[in-house]
């Protein structure tokens, strides 16, 4: 039984723009899928379907159950979504409040939510930020806290949109290490193909609202012609091997 299965998913925005045109893929426990593609390929739109925020035509199944049939709270605890801009996700007055937000919504007691939040903050190396206001943090710290906010819900599948965008090399490296160590299944939408190589075992190329190719990360990301056809380039670490 797949953890996630997407079949022939179509989605059109209210202005008529076709964002997804028949997306099909699946993900098993322990998989890490890099979702790559040019700007406007539909990556972020696809991610919003995976925990039931957007609903297109076709099927999105988690544990073989269509997302429409999941209780919203349970689905969002199972599929954790980390947004592209962490400032959008950090809306509570302090870091601790923000990380507790999901667990409290899931019905945990305040003590249990606080305990879990502190544990997760510790695991992402942000325990010392608990009492800080989220918008006083650096970009790298915001990323860690945004990730902690989702990890505190103990999701089985982590869906992450552009996790290292606008980070300095050190911040980027620490986020990559963090992602690599997370045991959950992951879908990472990004332009950073080096990150995909380091974190993901599989890759899917999305272009024109459709999965154009998918397979083992090292094989697909070494295919110069394929990548160029879809607005991508072979990452430097494979180019000079």
């Amino acid at each position: 039984m797949s953890l996630l299965r997407v079949d022939d998913l179509h989605f059109r925005y209210p202005d008529g723009t076709a964002a997804l045109t028949g997306v099909t893929f699946s993900l098993d426990h322990g998989d890490s899928l890099g979702l790559v593609g040019r700007n406007g390929a539909g990556k972020s739109t696809l991610l919003l379907h995976l925990n039931g925020i957007l609903h297109g035509t076709g099927a999105v199944r988690v544990h073989d159950q269509p997302v429409e049939q999941w209780p919203a709270g349970e689905l969002r605890a199972t599929v954790g979504l980390v947004f592209e801009d962490p400032a959008d996700q950090l809306f509570m007055p302090t870091v601790l409040d923000d990380v507790c937000f999901g667990p409290l919504n899931a019905g945990l007691s305040a003590d249990e939510a606080r305990r879990r939040a502190l544990e997760v903050l510790h695991s992402v190396g942000a325990a010392d930020l608990a009492d800080r206001a989220p918008h006083h943090l650096s970009a790298g710290q915001m990323r860690r806290v945004a990730l902690a906010g989702v990890l505190a819900m103990e999701p089985e599948l982590l869906v992450i949109d552009e996790p290292v965008m606008a980070l300095d090399p050190e911040g980027r490296e620490s986020v990559i290490e963090l992602l690599r160590d997370l045991p959950q299944a992951k879908i990472i939408a990004t332009h950073d193909l080096e990150l995909v190589l380091e974190v993901c075992n599989r890759v899917a190329i999305l272009d024109g609202g459709r999965i154009q190719a998918q397979g083992p990360a090292r094989d697909l990301l070494a295919d110069d012609t394929l990548l160029r056809n879809h607005g991508l380039r072979v990452p430097a670490s494979l180019r000079f091997v």
Partner: peptide, 10 residues
Amino acid sequence: RVALAMVSRG
């Protein structure tokens, strides 16, 4: 986007 982020965490 903030509303979506809130909804996605229950």
